[in-house]
Amino acid sequence: MARQFSLAYLTVLGCPPPEMTYIAAQAGYDYVSLRPIYMGLPGEPNYALNENKELMRQTKTALAETGVKLHDIELARIHDGVDVKKYLPAMEMAAELGGCAVLSSIWTPDRKFYIEKFAELCDLAKPFGLTVDLEFVPIASVFDLKGAIDVLRTVQRENAGLMVDTHHFHRSRDKIEELEAVPRGWFHFAHLCDAPAEIPASKEEMTRILREARLYVGEGGIDVAGILGRLPEVPYSIELPHVARVKEFGYAEHARRCLQSAKDYFAAHSREQNF
């Protein structure tokens, strides 16, 4: 079975869903990973497809014309005071477009609250046939593999999953061997990128690299092959924001380089890691 790749929203940050879909098709991706949940960040466009019928129509057309499929949507954040029912329209839209998963992360230290809300999010997603995949982020409240496993073991929802981002895994100082004890059924997809091996001392520098300066796979110092070699075969969503390269190359060429570097890396490491 051929390896499958998705173009993640942050890789082409600010690109509208229809254009993103055509770019993905041109570059050779199988899927797109969209952000139809508006997060209200400074300068961020609102691509809430459930609120914009014309944008939804254009996105449907792009998916139909290219054959690219929607893989997952983001980002269903669990934060203080959140009402996860607000994510229902986006999940309904994802199901309508044939999506598989909802990406989530946790940004409140209140364990009782986030366990309750993550479980509720899973229950809301289940009728749409969607998994809810928890991403641990080194600058968030649930920041490492141990914390994410605690959530999944506590909620015990069939459609709950664990989403490993190679950048975040390395920055959270997790041990690659720990992945071997994780239930295989929890893995539905993974985020793929690279970064310098040295872990930034400050949260500010960690955040800067995370949001705007990740590297092409094989260009940095993360043991990407070691991480992925402990996962089952899943689609790889390339989440590789790099502001300077997008400015230099444009969305389409940056997306192409992301995919080509990933394929080259897999080809170079396939034997040693049993890919």
Rank of each mutant, 00 (worst) to 15 (best):
D194M: 10
A160G: 09
V155S: 10
N159L: 02
I176L: 07
W186M: 12
L162R: 00
I149Q: 14
T166A: 09
S202F: 10
R153F: 12
A160E: 02
Q156V: 12
H167C: 09
G185R: 07
D165S: 01
D174W: 06
V164H: 00
L162G: 00
H168T: 02
F187I: 14
R173H: 09
W186F: 12
H168A: 01
R184Y: 06
L179K: 03
D165Y: 00
P183M: 05
E178W: 11
E198G: 00
F169Y: 04
P183L: 12
H191F: 09
R157S: 05
K175F: 12
R173N: 10
G161L: 04
E177M: 12
T166S: 14
V164R: 01
S202E: 13
R184P: 03
I176K: 07
I199A: 05
A148V: 10
V151N: 02
K175H: 12
E177N: 08
K175V: 11
K175S: 10
H168R: 01
F189V: 05
H188W: 07
R184A: 15
K175I: 13
A201I: 05
H191R: 12
A160T: 07
E178T: 11
D150G: 05
H170S: 11
D194G: 11
L179F: 07
A197P: 09
A201M: 03
Q156T: 10
V155C: 13
W186A: 11
S172Y: 03
D194N: 13
E158G: 01
N159R: 01
A195Y: 07
L162M: 04
R153H: 15
L162K: 02
H168Y: 02
V151C: 10
N159H: 01
A160F: 03
T166I: 05
Q156P: 06
E158D: 15
H167W: 15
V182W: 05
N159A: 01
L162V: 02
W186N: 07
G185S: 14
P196L: 10
L192T: 06
S202W: 12
A201Y: 00
R171M: 15
R157M: 11
R153M: 14
E177C: 06
A201N: 00
A160C: 13
L192S: 10
A195L: 08
K175Q: 13
E158Y: 00
E180M: 13
L152N: 08
A190K: 04
F189G: 04
A201T: 03
R173G: 00
P196F: 06
F169C: 04
I149D: 08
P196E: 13
P196C: 09
R171P: 03
N159P: 00
D165N: 00
E178M: 07
I149M: 15
W186V: 09
S172N: 03
A197Y: 12
V164E: 01
I176T: 09
C193F: 04
L179T: 09
P200H: 11
N159I: 02
G185D: 14
G161M: 04
D174F: 10
L179H: 04
A160N: 02
P183A: 06
S202H: 08
T154V: 14
H188G: 10
I199V: 11
A181F: 01
A201Q: 13
A201H: 04
A148M: 11
T154Q: 12
R157P: 07
F169W: 05
